[in-house]
Design a protein around this nucleic acid. Sequence first.
DNA 1: TTGAAAGCGCTAACAT
DNA 2: ATGTTAGCGCTTTCAA
Lengths: 364, 364
Amino acid sequence: MSLRDAREEAPRAVTMSDVARIAGVSLKTVSNVINDYPHVRPTTRARVTEAIEELGYRVNATARNLRRGRTGLVGLAIPDLGESYFGELANAVVDVADGMGLSVLIEPTRADAASELEVLTNDRRSMTDGLLFSPLLLEATDLRRAVAASPFPIVLLGERVFGVGIDHAVMANIEGTRAATAYLIERGARRIVAAGAPPVREPDPRLVDVAEDGLTRELTTSSEALRLEGYRRALADAGLPFDPDLLLPTGPWRRSTGAAALSDALDADLDFDGVVGFNDAVALGALHTLQIRGVDVPGRVQVIGFDDLDEAAYATPALTTVAPGRVEIAKTALDLLALRLEGSTEPASLRVLPFHISARDTTR
Amino acid sequence: MSLRDAREEAPRAVTMSDVARIAGVSLKTVSNVINDYPHVRPTTRARVTEAIEELGYRVNATARNLRRGRTGLVGLAIPDLGESYFGELANAVVDVADGMGLSVLIEPTRADAASELEVLTNDRRSMTDGLLFSPLLLEATDLRRAVAASPFPIVLLGERVFGVGIDHAVMANIEGTRAATAYLIERGARRIVAAGAPPVREPDPRLVDVAEDGLTRELTTSSEALRLEGYRRALADAGLPFDPDLLLPTGPWRRSTGAAALSDALDADLDFDGVVGFNDAVALGALHTLQIRGVDVPGRVQVIGFDDLDEAAYATPALTTVAPGRVEIAKTALDLLALRLEGSTEPASLRVLPFHISARDTTR
DNA sequence: TTGAAAGCGCTAACAT
DNA sequence: ATGTTAGCGCTTTCAA
């Protein structure tokens, strides 16, 4: 009815001046009311509020943004919303941003280096105040250059570590995997398979002295390499031998590849009593194979994952996993960004976030 | 270096007038070049382009949006990005929108009726030109009222059907499940379990004459009910009896609930040779249980799902499933929205989209 | 405590 | 083919 007619007649939307006119006050006063400026007489405020109500006024965010010079929008560039991990991360970012009065413009980069670069110079960049970026494929040098040239603040988030010079909220890849591995060892596992390890068995030469306290000197590598490093350290901590035969590369970290890797291991009569899945998908796939093959979990083989996806809790048996603190990551990344938005010129910081182990039923 | 200094000194960003000045032309000409207005002399265009290059000019989307009266942003309200189905749907919407020059502001509503309502009157609504909405919990009447009162166009997308009066791009719930069931029947299945059926065993009384051609008279119901209806029809088509014992309610459609439902069925010695999972998660869970229990799939029991998640293709055996045409849904919904954005006052239309069956290895 | 007025950066009539 | 100019709707000095 009236509203529909209104739309058809292409009426001017109601503006602040309409409100001002009806309320018998000036623009400034309406603005004051809307923006909760304290020094407004209660009666005036009431009149304005009433007029707003009556006219169904809503502020025009575009005009406000133009005037203020900011949009309240931040970009979130992630590889793929179809992957549970990124979907859940996006959920977390949106929630946290909401609490800060920010909105999130999510831009999937489709696991494609070109679109990862493109996202930095997109048309959308002029609608956002800053960018949260989770690159997957971009070379560290390309990234560093592009970020340095960007007129807006960028914060990296997620898994990969690219070195200093860029604000960065990362999960504790090394310490998380180390703790996961140690968790199995504490529970009696001695021969622990690393499902999702990188195909190369030597330590990554680029991985130099990776401390997880922000004091890192040089660190440019993949999460595979970082998680492998955590696994190695846990073995070393426990005085257990490092056996390359226990490294199961999977390629992409999916259920199917995890399942296949374990199938192969079983077929090859590999001797093992624990599985560290480098992420939950791989761990869940591994668990699947073990169950089909009739291997008792956790009795004969214990399994632990990494990510704490919702699904992990619902698997049978429920998957023990490293919870990397998605909300913490989101919160830290947004805080870092907010600081830059306020004009901070502090040196870039790398924040490695606390994690914990969600103990469930695939471990003893 | 220079760009960083620039940021620290809080310099005016370069504007169109700067470009105009450097190029020695007027604002209008710069605008013409930027917007690919055809009647610009090549030499002029070159000069402008050069100035743009030199200054590193980027148009200010906010100013443009204010002037144009549109933002080029559409909202996408979906329950939860952590669910693969919605993540993949969001991917599709973003891709299609990209091709239309639109950006997508994704807003998870967290399976909460209040936030589903709230999304319609959000602050973000003044930054978007229209809204794609996939409600899960909202009562049909509430929704209808809210949509009617909205000053911006809304298109519903996804699964539930709310009745006429609202533009709507839906998947073929009934026909898809009917085809899925028929597919198993054609391959010899006779006692087919419906995993994910609603707990009530009577046909939904609200489900009256649901045609899937837009000529629907009355249709206000859940996707559970619609898919059950498809299942019933396929049985009827084949002259097979409808046995309520074969209806396996799961509650939420997840792997875990699908797995549990099949476990119970097996424990109860239920006699069946086919499983129609009401979505892929349920089907995948069912498949999992069947494999653990040593039931030969597809030899002894055939399984088919609904959604065609990426994961379905990677399961072992790969899951046969109904592909509901996510991209088609996205495309149709955005086309519908674009029409309204252009001012169309056509009556609202319900588009039920074509689907197909992705034949894989869980069926013969 | 409120008002007047300028202007954010752009597009699009309207001129020429 | 290009220039002039008036706003889009808001926030924000500056005054009163």
